[in-house]
Design a protein around this nucleic acid. Structure first.
Lengths: 175, 175
DNA sequence: TGCTATTAGATCGTATGCGATACATTCGTA
DNA sequence: TACGAATGTATCGCATACGATCTAATAGCA
């Protein structure tokens, strides 16, 4: 028998295949969310593209010894040093519950410092160390996979539209 | 003093701002990856758009009592029932190490069954229960946030280009 | 001044992703 | 047909995300 399998006997599969058209679906021209296939969901395209980016970058990031969010944090701090956790969070679209552990790891690795702001002890200011800046420079020169298969103008428009999408989702979510 | 703070005394921040142009960067017209700002990275646009989708869908998915990957699994199974873990994984771009725990939770919740294929005991076939199909129907009728801020033709092109991007990243990663 | 509300981070629990590995089953082939 | 290789899932450990909650520090105000 299997290891800790968990599968239980039950009725047979039934192999129902809801391919394209459900019987009463053709009344509207525009399909409702339920009638679309998975491949048609924009959310799923973005979700799976994000997974693909993570895998494509994995090899290069491993050479730096960083994960993707760690790398993003280094890049954001290189652009502006001495940011507070909140400020950095705004740029990365993350909050302290996610950011704090990441920053502590980077501090432990010697790439940045976390210091309470003397003027407001609630805030923690993050600054890159020499090692952190060296890491950023090193990351500049390594070519992460960028085989997008898109022409330059398509690439630029895609970038803009993804940003527009993101910002509008955030706006709509905030109500 | 703070709770378990971890911050240590050290030299002062130094507030170095590498805004746009580093001294020797202007020799090429096209900026190298290191000279771009965070907002210019397509990977970051996709990463943050994915976060934004997750937050936008959170409310609706909570009503279903599902997470996003759980919902995707239900949708994919509704399209084709009785898939193996591998087949489902191909559609979701996930492998068994991620999928198995998700499927076990959905099984425990009563939305699907996991059964070893009698013809090949290595494979596990997944089929939706009545409850799982009801959940899919319920999800059809609830409007998840879709305020993309894009015109229909832009939306369609965005969808296509994100998929192209994803597929080319996967191809390039496989070498 | 003293008290309460607000703010900024940190902590905790849960749910993915994912590399590495374990394990049972099946396949290939000598 | 026996046995090592390949295959399909599952398990484990680590690193995010994120809601809920905690704590210290500050702000606001009677």
């Amino acid at each position: 028998m299997r290891p800790n399998d968990g599968s239980r006997p039950g009725s047979t599969a039934g192999a129902r295949d809801n391919s394209k058209d459900s019987s009463k679906a053709n009344q509207k021209t525009k399909p409702s969310p339920g009638e679309r296939r998975l491949g048609d969901f924009l959310c799923f395209a973005v979700y799976s593209a994000n997974l693909a980016f993570g895998r494509a970058y994995k090899k290069g990031l491993d050479e730096l010894g960083l994960t993707y969010p760690q790398w993003i944090a280094i890049v954001a701090l290189w652009e502006q040093d001495g940011q507070t956790v909140s400020e950095l969070g705004e740029k990365m679209f993350l909050e302290s519950n996610t950011l704090t552990p990441i920053l502590k790891k980077l501090e432990a690795a010697g790439y940045l410092r976390r210091q309470r702001d003397p003027a407001d002890e609630r805030q923690v200011r993050i600054s890159l160390t020499e090692g952190g800046r060296r890491l950023r420079e090193k990351g500049m020169h390594m070519n992460l996979v960028t085989a997008t298969g898109l022409k330059p103008d398509e690439f630029a428009r895609l970038q803009e539209n993804v940003v527009t999408l993101r910002d509008n989702l955030i706006k709509a979510t905030a109500e």
